[in-house]
Amino acid sequence: MTRPDATHAKGAGLKPIPALLRLALAALFLLPLLFMVLAAFRPAGSPLTSSLWTGLPTVENFRKLFSILPIGRYTLNSLLVAAVAVPLTVLTASWAGFAMARLPRPTQRRWVLLSLLVLMIPGVALWSSRFILYSRLGIGGTLWTLIVPAFMGTSPFFVLIFYRAFRRIPTAIYDSARLEGAGVLATWGRVALPMARPTAVAVAALAFILYWGDYISPLLYLGDAARYTLPVGLQLLAQLGRSNYPLLLAGALWSTLLPLLLVVGGVLAVAAVERAHARKFGSITGQSERDN
């Protein structure tokens, strides 16, 4: 447990420079989104030479977006992939993380090291052989090719995050669960996972972002156009006209909406948890924030 941040927060009022720095840095990181919004709501025909903001925002570009491409279909496909892959990821990654945290120390070390090593395998090394593998498995070209990694927790990164959270739960709690006769699954489901709920939410959010935005996998493994996901749809849009920025950025903004909501929601949730903790204990524990 770390010491409170409250003193720090109090001090911030007296020290405006860090706050200003935060504001400036935040603004810098928000620039891509800002320009996306500015361009997406421009009137479709307005020349690029005119000023960045033309005054009259329109949703014309979005209407055009849906009329020239089956963006609705692509969005549904992306949602479908995420709807299957995200819960699956949380399930298998938390299983693995839980098992790793509860296994004897030497086994634990081996798995952590293995996970770290796998994290270091560059994705490009696996493209062609995974492609061959998927077609041998008979799922080549289907949305399953995008979902398959979820069966193993998607990424060792997620497993390690869970491992870390489960390691922090005092052993006494596990032991008492065992004494009450809870099996492995029951301990995982009724004791460990509820205590690591913020971690699970964080992993779910990260997994969603990963599956929602994946560009390479659909490019390599998808066949039928009816199965295209949103990132491929955006690429298709760029093929139609690389210089039609208002339309392109309307598409980009559309595909960014859900991640945007997720990030804002996640940060608001952390803020709420921090406030609740501060009221309750007069302090902020590190746990809740770290997991976000």
């Binding site: 891509p32 929602w212 949103l230 690429q235 760029a238 920025y245 950025l249």
Partner: peptide, 13 residues
């Protein structure tokens, strides 16, 4: 958190 292709389009602009 943005899809890579959306991020790329923003930078293209």
């Amino acid at each position: 958190a943005m899809p890579a292709s959306a991020f790329a389009l923003a930078w293209l602009w």
